[in-house]
Amino acid sequence: MTPVLQTRNLSKRFGGFFASKDVSLSIEPGARHALIGPNGAGKTTLINLLTGFLEPSAGEVFLKGEDVTRLAQHQRVKRGLVRTFQINRLFAEMTVLESVTLSVCERLGLGWNWWRPVGDHTAAIDEAAELLATLRLLDVAHTQTRSLAYGRQRMIEIALALAAKPQVLLLDEPAAGVPTDESRELFETIAQLPREVTIVLIEHDMDLVFRFAERISVLVGGALLTEDLPEVIARDRRVREVYLGEALDG
């Protein structure tokens, strides 16, 4: 099977410092893949390179076999590669329903439509409302994003990405800063996504990682240390040394 997402010797240099170093990664369709590593390991940088948020200093990115290294972010989104952000990037003054409708409209190619009101694009609005129902956000549909609790805002972060109907979804610490019970709900939602959606997850909470992932890549100092099944990673000496430390002993 062709990997749905692949990188070849991907590197990113900031001055003399390598935030990503020679990363060659291959993700199968339908994968539940976790990307772990200590703070500053280059996880977010890797996602930035994959999505075109940053330009690589060297190397290539392939999406469904196509070289997308030179494509702009929105062009990669159009091809099914969608991300969420570690730090919320939301539309503060829009209602939740408006935000998600905006994302749906962009996916449906309505973004250049300048004559018919958004309200008349019923298919887009209905789809947005359905997504809110799935994510249990209906009660805040008409609430301004900025006045929501942080946990709910984190959910909107994901809703905006899902509205783009990703084939590959890159989640950058989706539950960071979310209270435990809400974070469980959030991960249930992620776990229930259909297999057509390939998921790459960055997460620091090892319980969550091992519950979710079927494959794990470990980044250290910008480079890929190892990649394997969760049980192999859990036993890997080097991984324990550089990253997990005591976390797995208990």
Binding site: A72, V77, R89, F91, A92, E93, S103, L160
Partner: peptide, 12 residues
């Protein structure tokens, strides 16, 4: 409202 998010939802 958030120029950085727009490309990530597919907007040019």
């Amino acid at each position: 409202q958030n120029v950085g998010r727009m490309p990530a939802i597919g907007a040019p």
